[in-house]
Design a binder for these strands. Sequence first.
DNA 1: TTTTTACTTTAAAATCGTTCTAAACTACTT
DNA 2: AAGTAGTTTAGAACGATTTTAAAGTAAAAA
Lengths: 132, 132
Amino acid sequence: MNNKEKLRNAGLRPTKQRMIIANILLNGVNRHFTAENLQNEINSSGNSMSIATIYNCLKKFRNCGLIKQVESSKETAIFDTNINQHHHFLDEETGELIDIENEEINLFKLPEIPKGYMNSGVEVLIKLKRQI
Amino acid sequence: MNNKEKLRNAGLRPTKQRMIIANILLNGVNRHFTAENLQNEINSSGNSMSIATIYNCLKKFRNCGLIKQVESSKETAIFDTNINQHHHFLDEETGELIDIENEEINLFKLPEIPKGYMNSGVEVLIKLKRQI
DNA sequence: TTTTTACTTTAAAATCGTTCTAAACTACTT
DNA sequence: AAGTAGTTTAGAACGATTTTAAAGTAAAAA
Ligand SMILES: [Mn+2]
Ligand SMILES: [Mn+2]
Ligand SMILES: [Zn+2]
Ligand SMILES: [Zn+2]
């Protein structure tokens, strides 16, 4: 499925701006990025886009499940093109995230889900320190 | 150990402001909170404190390990008085966090830690949706 | 104890990431 | 082609956090 179809499937009009972003993000190579990272990539690809549009697109893409937003205590929002359930290493010093595929972790025992709720995803974060 | 000693042990001067915050946070009852939550508690305890001081204190407390900061994609920083390794349920709709004690989860298989790094903490987040 | 020093608090300003506004533009429908 | 609903944009606004710099306080030195 090409990017135009992906956008249409998600219920999004394939505008020029959304296609530029889709072509950068949805090329099969997964990455973690901020809105500013993406704007820099857009600029170096010879295009340009308002930061408001970038935020609008990222929010739409996220809400449609085309990308995810990472849980992070950094002040800047971090997005992720890997939409499969997966886990992360976090280098606490640099903030760098590294994907851990779902099969690499096995959760043996899980707590009971609170009454009235259902499990909607489990994420494991392994924090890393430089070895001494 | 009383709060004054805890601050001294952490290498922090037990100032009036830090003692007010320590008395609210380090009373044995764990909680998740924002800087603004804390300022409201300070105000309702009959005290008052500059928001800059509250942020200064929280950062010092965090860096000394007296409190933790939660990994969260909310725009406002969330702190946690539970400094033991533990996990969380997250109600994605409300943002509410519920502690899961460490023993309630068993990680059977863990991936290999990247070369040059050491594991400095594992956190599991279980996202919750309202049951349909 | 007094003096000195380093650290802390504060209000206010600044900064930063993100969202809003409202006008111009564009994609889709009829 | 005309209508309409959705989108983009620059710039303003916003909310969270940090910085500034001056005044205050705690600990150390004398
Ligand atoms: Mn955050
Ligand atoms: Mn922010
Ligand atoms: Zn990832
Ligand atoms: Zn907690």
